[in-house]
Amino acid sequence: MTRAGRWGATVVVAAVALWALVARPWAPTLPVLPIGGEFALTDHNGAPFRLSQLQGKVVLVFFGYSMCPDVCPTTLSKLSVVARRLGDDAAKVKTLYVTVDPDRDTPSVLKADLQSFALDAIGLTGPRPAVDSVVKKFGASYSLNPTPESVAKYTVTHTTTLYALDVRGRARMTFAYEASVEEIVNGIRRILAADGP
């Protein structure tokens, strides 16, 4: 091999190494999902809230209601464990608990709900049309079921998907209700890595 040839080979190898380092082709790409987007609701302190306030944080969004005995506390509990597992990275993550029962879930009810969990979360409520528009944006759904035989009067059937948004508010991953703490922690780390610091 000539001297120039060796030089050329070195340059090619260096270029490939640099490209690999920057583009990381081995890391599976994280698509931007065609759901979500900016929305406005009222937070658990009664203050106006916009998703764009959370620019710079990975945001976890789920829909629920406080009279729900199971799914909602279970999700809050699981996300508290996720936060603990994330360690220092937990400061880069915010959870949004959007009620689908705004008639009962006033800001103070949501606040009480969240207070008992060691989790950096915001409870969100608002006029039903505003809640409905957020539900629609995420492709979630819910329905009210009258239960005259119960003091609850009605219960709410709702989707239990957890949505993970990147630091620019774009939906990047969804998790089923059964997703483990491990899966959610790994997902958050991937989203953080995809966006860099």
Binding site: P69, N145, T147, E149, S150, T157, H158, A176, Y177
Partner: peptide
């Protein structure tokens, strides 16, 4: 508590519902 009721959570696809 004032009232106790027997309830069941059911899963239907991605949805969860509660009914007495």
């Amino acid at each position: 508590a004032e009232t106790l009721e027997l309830h069941e959570m059911k899963r239907d696809g991605a949805s969860m519902s509660m009914s007495p």
